[in-house]
Design a binder for these strands. Structure first.
Lengths: 207, 207
DNA sequence: AACGAAACGTGACGATCCGTCAATTTCTCC
DNA sequence: GGAGAAATTGACGGATCGTCACGTTTCGTT
């Protein structure tokens, strides 16, 4: 036997360069998006920075939009495990919320590279893309809320509106946090958590 | 005296067609944005629908982005008076919030033409533009919150985070409302209002 | 090691869009 | 009416788009 007694297949030069090229394009795209904004960047801007030929880009992605989606998915894949971990160790609904907000705000701050990407420098346009991975994250949240309501840990309120509110608060507050002089994700998470916890109680009480 | 005994200047053909052309471009843009999505539409798509020459577009707007901004401003100008009215007749903070949310959700529903504009049909990209008029609306809200806190009508919480939360809740909930089978802006406004009112109380209480 | 097939990178190509501008038409005012 | 300002027009150079035929690299086989 020459090789592959291990289950994993040896890389193979073909797949190596393929993965390298794909990553090179993603890295270049991240940089260019952050520099020019999503709206102003062109496929050529991205591929130029990699040294590859223009046609090669289309072997990996179908459009600028699709690279952006891949980058969003990358982010979502990085943050979802942290959210899951937080979710598992939460004993109370309040702890659950606080963990989620804190992880999200912290991530956005340490990553703001990727967050600035969503702002088109020209004008005041903001782009947001709900990719499959992002949506999956939203749905995990939604499932936990449904389950929390079913188990009586969360008061019986409109789960869709609640999920939407959490997402809206998280994204809009994140936007303010990254522009603060001395951002404090912990403080922000406390604010958001108490807002929601106190709010739900009142919603459930029916006024 | 031939004319203009009234203070108002007679229209004048020049200004007439100018206003007509501008409006034609705006109307065409609204239709095309709603049809193709913001990302996919080109200046040519817009101008083609008006029958004007391509060069004429640039006599009125500098770019696709600027037409979009004009459309957003139009919307903001339409809704701000309604919000102001609601704000003036509000006796309590709760009434204030409820009025704002109800007006906003109702507007979004009856206008969803303009709301769909923000969705790029291709993929799941959403664009949002905070134009001067929109920002002015946000700041009016912020000012009222600051004032409410100063007068003791609103508990003393972080006004920036509170404003952000309101905006986040409003936009994200609006997104869900327009996709519901039988949308009820009143119910949604009640949810949002109680969420915030109850939440603020808890935030102010400090846990 | 040599070979053939398949996969991949390359850059040129036609189509389209961008923003500009000189020529032309339309309006205003004397 | 007619001079002059203002606005419209469409063609132009520059650039991007997505495709495709071609050349090169890799892989499995003999």
């Amino acid at each position: 036997m020459s090789e592959t007694n291990v289950a994993s297949v040896p890389p193979g030069k073909r797949e190596q360069t393929k993965a390298a090229n794909r990553q090179a394009i993603l890295d270049a795209a991240r940089a260019v998006f952050a520099e020019l904004g999503y709206g102003a960047t062109t496929v050529r801007d991205i591929i130029r920075r990699t040294g590859l030929a223009s046609g090669t880009f289309y072997n990996y992605f179908r459009s600028k939009e699709e690279v952006f989606q891949a980058l969003m998915d990358e982010s979502a894949l990085r943050i979802r495990p942290r959210l899951k971990e937080e979710r598992l160790k939460a004993k109370t609904f309040e702890g659950f919320l606080h963990g989620m907000f804190a992880v999200f705000f912290t991530y956005v701050l340490e990553d703001n590279h990727g967050y600035e990407m969503m702002r088109a420098n020209t004008g005041a346009i903001r782009v947001r893309m709900d990719t499959p991975e992002v949506i999956a994250g939203f749905e995990e949240l939604r499932v936990d809320i449904d389950s929390g309501i079913a188990r009586g840990v969360i008061p019986d309120v409109d789960a869709e509106y609640l999920t939407a509110s959490l997402i809206g608060i998280a994204f809009e507050m994140a936007d303010r946090i990254v522009t603060r002089d001395d951002p404090d994700p912990e403080e922000a998470a406390r604010f958001a958590t108490e807002l929601v916890v106190g709010g739900i109680a009142k919603v459930a009480a029916g006024g």
